[in-house]
Every structure is written in structure tokens, then in C-alpha cells.
Design a protein around this nucleic acid. Structure first.
Lengths: 183, 183
DNA sequence: TTGACGTGAGAACGACCGTTCTCTACGTTA
DNA sequence: TAACGTAGAGAACGGTCGTTCTCACGTCAA
């Protein structure tokens, strides 16, 4: 009955390792050691590494979007919620273990070889974009802004990952403010 | 003396394979077969796979930026040159073998394990950004626009790669036109 | 002509990794 | 208590991959 606990332990270890070092660079042995589970238990929870990777991306997606929404919804003014997305990105970029967007990185690593990973990445990006579309609509702004805000966020994530700086968040927020102000 | 030719053959094969399938998914054996060179010749040109990867990124960087500049410089009006960057991206995204930005993908794949690859990626992105800075300055526009245009381009590249659609280029171009028009 | 050398083709080596198997110990239940 | 199922620890297996080695062959200098 505490296989739910074991599952969380496995995913905690997998997430830290996969995100920090890349999926292919981390062996199941490393996950075993970091999780404190036996290889047998690990394989009965996730019969193959693919499935562990998929579960890692899926769980992280829920947490990531949850944390974002939680931050954004502290703002009551719908107009302020869109720049608030970039405030949150800036905080995230500043975290010590930040190493870029997990989905963009996974796509770069496995996009050519795993259809399952591609599906996870597309689902996550689609969900993020849909969330932004909601914010844009709630603010009474034209829908064309959604794609523009989304691209700025993606550009900021990828650039912050590569350069290791949090500044792209501020640049993107300024651009968003210009685009919103021009309406 | 035709080791220059052999080098190009090796890099042609490596580029097609690394870009299309990912670096880690391609063995030296596949490069050997695709290039028509012997393993011995390959290893005397590039003593280790790392160096082949580095040379691949370096050569592609020169070609990529060359093609971009060639397209952009067909426009005489400095103001039109900035949107023209996105016209070129749109063409690129539409190519049959397009699979995202080679440097963003390489960062996702090897950013955590290869300092050399990270350096290549940063150098490429820095060069691209500097190029945009030149276009912005030549158009007599404020320098803050550089970062914004850059982020839109990065967002478009990453999104086009993940979704397989060329549309992000048009969205980014519209955003750029708004930002330029607001000045 | 001969012998040293470089080359191509591919076998071989050593390391790693995903996955499975073995063996032992322990807890549970009839 | 005795039999059984389960889990942990880690060895073992099979495959892959980067790299090196072997060997036969052609080439060129003395």
C-alpha cells in the first residue's frame, strides 16, 4: 500500500537527476541509489526507463503549471496577470538548480528518437499556451497577443537556460508591456 | 592533400546525422558508413567524437549565419531588414528536414555533460544576437529592441521545432512589427 | 626488387547501461 | 513450527558504442 510512497521517491530522484544531468546521462542504477529503492521495486513501479521518463515529465508538468498559476492568481487585475507570468519566470530562472526548460531540453535530447517524449513536450507547451490564452481573454485583449506572449516566454526560457542569466525574463516582460500597451 | 575533401565528407555526413537524429543516437559507425570514409581516416581527422561534434556545430554556425545575412541583405531599407530575419526563419522552418535549432537541441542533449558544447552554443547565440544588434542600430532604433527581437526569434525557433509548424515565424514577425511601430 | 609505410575493411576490446536473475533473509499464515 | 511468498542486494546478461588493433594490400623510395 505504500507503493504510492515508493513511486514518489522514485520520481523525486528521477526528476532531480534527469533534469540536472539529462535523461540519457543518468542510468537506472543512479536512480536506484538516489531513491533508496531496490532495482526490483523500481522496475515493478516502472517496467521500463521510458515510462519513468514519461512519468517524470507528466508530474513535473502538473507541478510547474500549478506553481505558475498560484503565483499569477495573486494578482487581481487581469491586465497585471500577464506580466506576472514573467515575474514568476524570473524567480524560476534565479533558482540555484535552474538548467532551462525541462521539456525543451528533453525535446533536444529525445525528440528524434522517442515519440512518447515528443507527445509529452507538445502537450505541456500546448497547455501552457492555452493558459496564456485564458489570461489574454480575461484581460479583454485580442487573441493574437497569445502567440506573441507565448513566443516571448519560450525565448526567455531557452535563453535563460543557455546563458544562465535571469535577465531574459525582464526583457521579455518589457516587450510584453509594449505589446499590451500598443493595443 | 585531399584530407580537406575527406574532412568535408565527414562533416557532411555528421551534420546530416547529428542534426536529424541527435548526437548521442548516432554512432561513429553510422558516420563512417554515411561518409564513405574508413574508421581510421575518420579518427585521424577527428581524434574523438567530441571534436567531430564541435566541428559540426562550428561549420554549421558559419553556414547558418551566412545564409541569414545573405537573405537579409537583399533588403536595402534598414527598417525592413529586421522583419526579413523572420521571413528567412519562416523559409527555414518550412524545409523538409527542419527539426528545430541545432544549438538549442544540442544544449538540451549535451548541455549538462559537455562544457565544449555549451561554449559552442553560447558563441552561436551571442553571434546571432550581435548580428541583430547591428540591424537594430542600422535602423536607428533603440538598443533595447535587440533583446526583444532576439527572444522572439528564439521562441519561434524552439516552437517551430517542437510543433513542426512554420507559423511561429509569422507570429513573431507580427510582434516585431508591433514593437518597431510603437517606437 | 624489396622493404617500409600508409590505407581500408572490419574484427576486437573495454566500458557502460537497461534489464533480468540468483540468492539470501525475513515476515506471515495455516 | 513449517512452508511460502516477497523484497533487498547486487551479480549477471546482452547489446551498444567509442576507440583501437589486425591483417592483407597497394605504393613508393632506394
Amino acid at each position: 500500500m505504500d507503493s504510492a510512497v515508493a513511486r514518489e521517491q522514485a520520481l523525486d530522484a528521477a526528476e532531480k537527476l534527469f533534469y540536472g544531468r539529462g535523461v540519457q546521462a543518468v542510468g537506472m542504477d543512479a536512480v536506484r541509489t538516489a531513491s533508496g529503492l531496490s532495482l526490483k521495486r523500481l522496475y515493478q513501479l516502472f517496467p521500463a526507463k521510458d515510462q519513468l521518463v514519461e512519468a517524470y515529465l507528466e508530474r513535473r508538468d502538473l507541478r510547474w503549471r500549478g506553481r505558475l498559476a498560484e503565483h499569477v492568481e495573486r494578482h487581481d487585475d487581469p491586465r497585471e496577470r500577464i506580466p506576472a507570468v514573467f515575474d514568476w519566470l524570473e524567480e524560476w530562472f534565479g533558482e540555484a538548480d535552474f538548467r532551462g526548460c525541462a521539456w525543451i531540453n528533453s525535446y533536444g535530447e529525445l525528440g528524434a528518437s522517442s515519440e512518447r517524449v515528443v507527445a509529452q513536450v507538445r502537450a505541456h507547451k500546448r497547455a501552457f499556451r492555452d493558459y496564456l490564452a485564458g489570461l489574454v481573454a480575461d484581460a479583454g485583449l485580442p487573441a493574437v497577443l497569445t502567440g506573441q506572449v507565448f513566443l516571448l516566454a519560450e525565448g526567455a526560457m531557452v535563453t535563460a537556460g543557455i546563458t544562465g542569466s535571469a535577465e531574459p525574463a525582464a526583457e521579455a516582460r518589457e516587450a510584453v508591456r509594449s505589446l499590451l500597451g500598443a493595443v
